[in-house]
Structures are given as structure tokens and as C-alpha cells.
Design a protein around this nucleic acid. Structure first.
Lengths: 379, 379
DNA sequence: CTTCTTGCCGAAACCGGTTTCGGAAACTTT
DNA sequence: AAAGTTTCCGAAACCGGTTTCGGCAAGAAG
């Protein structure tokens, strides 16, 4: 006998049992869906007693509303968008895990989720972002590494979509942000070096398209001024954000007639390039010349001597960004959502009182160069 | 005159213009929603001519279906779930950026998104995972760092929710995976050391709760056997996955009566602990004793001498995992979705022919210890 | 005892899609 | 020419929620 609709009861449960829906809860209690919905969403026109009955029943039946089912009416998917640019090499690398941990943690705390995407190019980021916007995959976006003029900002602002920046822009209209006071850090770095006795202090800035770069240069200048040192434009090199870039910048500085005895770097990674130069020339970082940088990447701790740097708390940054963005999505005015936090100095071995004056250092470097030429001659 | 419903046309566009919906497309063409939907989703009962008209109109009007609106009927949100455990310190750190890049890239290629979450504890991961499942935030999940017996696997399997593992488990029933052949790498590492002339080769395994640990130990054993070397259980230490752990393991090995002249590490990070021991005792890695590890973390390149290791391509792993998971969600049988890839040897300076025999090394270490005692005595 | 509030909840529309069902028109077959 | 097939699309139900609207009953005011 075949019964088409009857299933033998002990078949393997291939389809997971049906979800419990709001209708299930309603039927179970003999009320309507609308009552359940309003009870669970805190409407005031539901009596406390029914609200209690309903929330208890919902709990007991294991009812969890589908956020995407809610979204279709409310327009909120309860998700934060994060589009990262992951370059060919390193860049954001070490920060990322902490940053993401911070973001997701804050999101989870509010029962939100994080939708993440990546691209290798700036254009790709743009496109991915607009895809996520078009499909409404997130209610708002976190924009890391903001540029002075940022296309993402312009696009989102034009469409009135909530966003928050990790960094600042030229035009703050309608913008919210969380940022680290890199300017303060650079001012402090310069001041510290000056107090150690350095008279010529250089600065290797970061990518000129980013706001932070200008801010940190400003901090460097302020630090010099505060210490009563003159500002020599030649002591500010071309931007450098990689090992190679930092190496080149360092070489160019040391080749000056009156080289600096200390260098501030806007970015740790560039500072690590200076180590190569030092090793190459047989100079000791921390005495022959000093280095202070910014970021707090792990490699800095392993360098020899370990890199003195201003560390940023990426985890906290992610956390704050997510929290602020959620507030923004819930309706807070963008102007009220602006936070700045300090970087924290990690004192290590790459800075100290200068062993030589700039002139002596120049002489020393000349000697080294001569020796190297001698080595090469016999060949 | 006040007209309640009329807006002066040049008000600022505070609400973004209304989305174009499927109904808009339908009305525009004088057809019904259902026709548009079927045309766009490749149903065969729509004539080619109308399909073309519709897809063109949709394109021109800029229609993008809301995935969460689709989801309510189809049950698919077109999103992959990724719950990471980010420990107090490092662990997954360096891999992460590449891994995420791989996952999101493959997802984007199919117009899917990635929903990411983190937790610090194993329990937290479990809870977060089940929350995402309950709210159906993703159609399937990628499970990194699978354990031999993995609760996440059990939970998902029981609920019949698609998932794919980065790693393998004891019980493969209903499981899909992508994994790196760590066993092959360890076999090759051991063989390499044996061919360099090492007679006593040790192994420092990874966390015993992970499958990879057992596999790599197996590879190490196979390598010894293939080289005709006997297996000394004393040469397999307690698990170590951190600097400290690796340091302790190395010390314990070198304190043996007949110490190994080469050590294979299941994990780079533990291998870096051996460098501390070497520095401490004044031994040269690569000649006094050799080290080969596994993972390919960036720090290994900076170590001195640079660490010889078997590197895994995290980006590719993420990419493959996402692709396989999407296939799984689309209905492929789990047994058909199992891939293994090789790790690639990065030959650097931490291994080489042994300068000393085990006996000589033991004597050498005894001398060092004596000297240290002498230093201490006078105090 | 009426009338006016207020509190509380049900009925039904709605959000933006998908899917089932059925029927008109065109096309074959006999 | 009648009957049987196909092809193609409209009508309507549906998915799982939210929100508007209105009405009944209880309490307050007159």
C-alpha cells in the first residue's frame, strides 16, 4: 500500500525542522501576529501582562525573528558594512585582526552583524561598496583609511546613507568619525627627541592622499616650534609607507650636508626601512641616529633595537567605530558622532641622546663611504 | 495656501529617492511582477523576446533585487558565514588578512557576501555561530581551525546546515573540507634534514586538539622511517604553539643526554621560540642545530637566520573554501567537496648540515652550562 | 446613567520579492 | 475542422515579519 503523503516516521531528518515563526507564537497563545510583533518590539499599546506572556512563550518556543524578514518592512537589515582595501602586500595587515575583532564585538553586543568585503584596488572598493549599497546588504558603512577627498564619502553622503570614517576628511559636512590624534603623537615624538638633545629632526610623512599625513606633518612642525627649533623644509622627505620607501627616505636624509640625528616616521613600516640602512652602513640606531615612528605594528617589537613608537589600539578603534555607526543609523546627528583618541607611546630602544652632532655624523658617513669605495677599487 | 501633500520641489533630498522595485519594472513594461521575476531568474516559460525586453528595462531602470526580500521566499540570503576565534594574543593574526581577502573575493565573484563575527573563547564562538544560524544570517559556514572532534561540526551537521572546514576531522561523515597537506610537509622536512646528514631529528607538535597536529606527527614519523632512522618517542615533545612553548620545548630537547641536531616544528611561532634559546646559549641555528617549521608567517623572514618553513597560501585557501561552500549550498554532495593542497617549501637559512654529532652537541652544551655556573659563582 | 477617554488588541494591508496554478492563444496533429 | 499540445504570461497566494487603522471594553468625567 502506498500512501503518497505519509512519511515513515523514522526517515533521516533531511530537512531541518521548520523554523518557528511569529505565527506559531501567535497561534500558540491565541493572539494575532500583530500583537506578538508589537509586544516583542516594545510598543506601548500592549499590556504588561500580555507582553510577559508573549515574551515568555517566544522564549520557550525558541522563536527568533528573521532579520531579513523584518528588513523587508523596516528597511533595516541590522548589519554594518566594511569594505577593505587589501593591497598586494602588507599595509593594513597587522591591524586587521584586532580591528575586525573590535568591530564585530561591538556589533554583536547590539545583536547586529558585520558584512565584510575586500578589493585590491581603489576602484574595486568603490564598486563593491556601491553593490552593497544597491543591494542594501548593510544599513551603514565603516570607512577605513579615509583620504582627504574621499569618493566613498561623497557617494554615501549623496545617497544619504549612514557611514563613519576611521580618519578625517577635508570637508567634515555630514561626516562622523573616530580617529587617533596622530598630530599629538608626532608633536610628542618631536618634543621627546628635542629634549634628548637632538637639534636636527627629520620627518618622513605617510601617503599624501590621506588626511593623517598632513595632520602628522603639522604635529611635527608644532613640536619643532615648541622646542624652539627652526623648521627646515629639506628635513621633510617624500612620502614613504613601505620598507623600501623608508629606506630610500632615510638614505636621502643621511646624504645631506647636515644630516638629521633623529627621524620621525609617520608609519612604522617605513621606519623599519631605516634599520636596513643602519645595518648597511654599520650605524647604531638609538645612538648614531634616533628613530620614532607611529602605528605599533608587532614587527617593531622584534626589530633590533626595538622600535620606539606611538601605538594605536585597533581593537578599540573598531569597537568605537561600530558603536558610533549604530547610533548614527538609529538617527543620531552626524555632528555629534566625532571622537578622537590618543596614541600611546611605547618607549623602546630606537631613540636616545645623539652621540654625534650633525656635522660629526656627516663626517662619519663620509668615512664609511670612502671605505666602501676602497673595498670596491681592487675588484 | 497650504497643500499638505505637496512638497516644494527643491527641498533637500533628505530621503534618498525610492528604490526601484520589481513592480516598477513590471509597470514600466505593462507586464506583471511574476513575469519580471521569472524572466530575470531564468525560468524557461518566458519567451526570449520578453526576457530580453525585461532584462534591458531592468538594467536601464537600475533595478537590483533586494537579497533579503528574495530570501524571505527562497530561504537563501546569499551570504557566507565566518566566525573567527581571536585569542588574547596572536595565533591567527598574520593569516587573517589574506584569508579574508580570499574568502570575500570568491564570494563577491558569485555576488555573494560574507558575514563575519568573532569571539575570544571557544564557547563564545559556539554561541555566536548558533545565533547566526538561528537568525539565518548566512546560508552556510566556513569553519577554520577544525578540531579532531569539533562541536561546531556536530551542531551544524545535526541541523543540516551547509558548512565547510578548513582542516579535517576524525569523523568525515557529511563533511566537506579544504586543507593543506601538513603531513606531506613534515615528511618532506624530515627527509630534507635526514639528507643533510642529521641522525637525530625531533618534532615539536601543535595543539593536540587539532587534527593537523596528529597528521603532522604522522608525516614526521613517515619521514624518519623513509630515511631509515629509528623513531625515538622522547624526540616528540609536548605541544607548543607559542614563542614560550617553543622555547621550553627546545630547551627540554637540548638538555637530553643525546640531543637532536635538528628540530621540526608544527608551527612557525613555536620555532621562533627556538631562536631565543639559541641566542641565550650562543648557538648558531642552521649549523649548531637546524630548524624547519610550518606556516609561513611573515616574522619568519625577519628572523636571523631567516626561518626555513613550509608556507601555506591563506588567500587561496579562503578562495577555495568560499567556492566549495557555495557549491555545497547549491546542492552538491559534501563528499564531493574535499580538496587538499600542498604547502610550499621556503628554503632559507635555519637548516643545514649538522656541524656536530649529537654527542658533541651535548658536550658543547655542558661546557656552556659550566661557563654560566662560573659566571654565577663569584657573586 | 450617559458621554468621553483611554487602554488594549484584532483585522487587514503592506514590504518586495517568488512560486503555483490556470488559462488564452498559437501551433500540431488527426 | 475539431481536438490535442505547447508556449507564454497573468492572477493570486505566499514568505515572515511590521504597521496602520479601527473598534470594543473598562474607567473617568459630567
Amino acid at each position: 500500500m502506498q500512501t503518497g503523503t505519509t512519511k515513515t516516521s523514522n526517515e533521516q531528518p533531511r530537512r531541518a525542522r521548520r523554523r518557528v515563526t511569529i505565527a506559531d507564537v501567535a497561534n500558540h497563545l491565541g493572539v494575532t501576529k500583530s500583537t506578538v510583533s508589537r509586544a516583542l518590539n516594545g510598543y506601548t499599546d500592549i499590556s504588561d501582562s500580555t507582553r510577559l506572556r508573549i515574551s515568555r512563550a517566544a522564549e520557550r518556543l525558541g522563536y527568533r525573528p528573521l532579520s531579513h524578514a523584518q528588513a523587508i518592512r523596516t528597511g533595516r537589515v541590522r548589519s554594518l558594512g566594511l569594505v577593505l582595501q587589501v593591497d598586494n602586500e602588507d599595509s593594513a595587515r597587522p591591524f586587521l585582526a584586532d580591528f575586525i575583532a573590535g568591530v564585530t564585538q561591538a556589533a554583536s553586543a547590539e545583536n547586529w552583524t558585520v558584512t565584510i568585503a575586500t578589493s585590491e584596488t581603489e576602484r574595486g572598493v568603490q564598486e563593491t561598496l556601491s553593490r552593497l549599497v544597491d543591494e542594501h546588504k548593510a544599513d551603514g558603512f565603516i570607512l577605513p583609511r579615509t583620504r582627504s577627498r574621499d569618493k566613498r564619502v561623497e557617494a554615501l553622503r549623496a545617497q544619504n546613507i549612514p557611514f563613519i570614517m576611521f580618519g578625517r576628511t577635508e570637508d567634515p559636512t555630514g561626516c562622523s568619525w573616530y580617529d587617533i590624534k596622530g598630530e599629538d603623537a608626532m608633536r610628542a615624538a618631536t618634543a621627546r627627541l628635542a629634549s634628548q638633545g637632538h637639534k636636527r629632526i627629520a620627518h618622513v610623512p605617510g601617503g599624501s592622499e590621506y588626511t593623517y599625513s598632513k595632520l602628522r606633518i603639522g604635529g611635527y612642525r608644532d613640536g619643532l616650534a615648541a622646542a624652539g627649533l627652526s623648521i627646515d623644509p629639506a628635513l621633510i622627505t617624500a612620502p614613504a609607507i613601505t620598507h623600501d620607501g623608508g629606506e630610500a627616505a632615510t638614505r636621502s636624509l643621511l646624504m645631506m650636508a647636515e644630516p638629521p640625528t633623529a627621524i620621525t616616521f609617520a608609519v612604522d613600516r617605513a621606519a623599519l626601512g631605516a634599520y636596513r640602512v643602519a645595518q648597511d652602513l654599520g650605524l647604531h640606531i638609538g645612538s648614531d641616529f634616533s628613530v620614532i615612528a607611529y602605528d605599533g605594528i608587532p614587527e617593531g617589537a622584534y626589530a633590533n633595537p626595538a622600535l620606539t613608537t606611538f601605538a594605536v589600539n585597533s581593537r578599540q578603534a573598531g569597537d568605537r567605530l561600530a558603536s558610533l555607526l549604530i547610533k548614527r543609523i538609529r538617527g543620531a546627528a552626524p555632528e555629534e558622532l566625532r571622537e578622537l583618541a590618543p596614541a600611546t607611546l611605547v618607549e623602546r630602544g630606537s631613540d636616545g641622546p645623539p652621540r654625534l652632532t650633525p656635522a660629526e655624523l656627516a663626517q662619519c658617513l663620509k668615512d664609511i663611504q670612502k671605505r666602501e669605495v676602497q673595498w670596491e677599487e681592487p675588484t
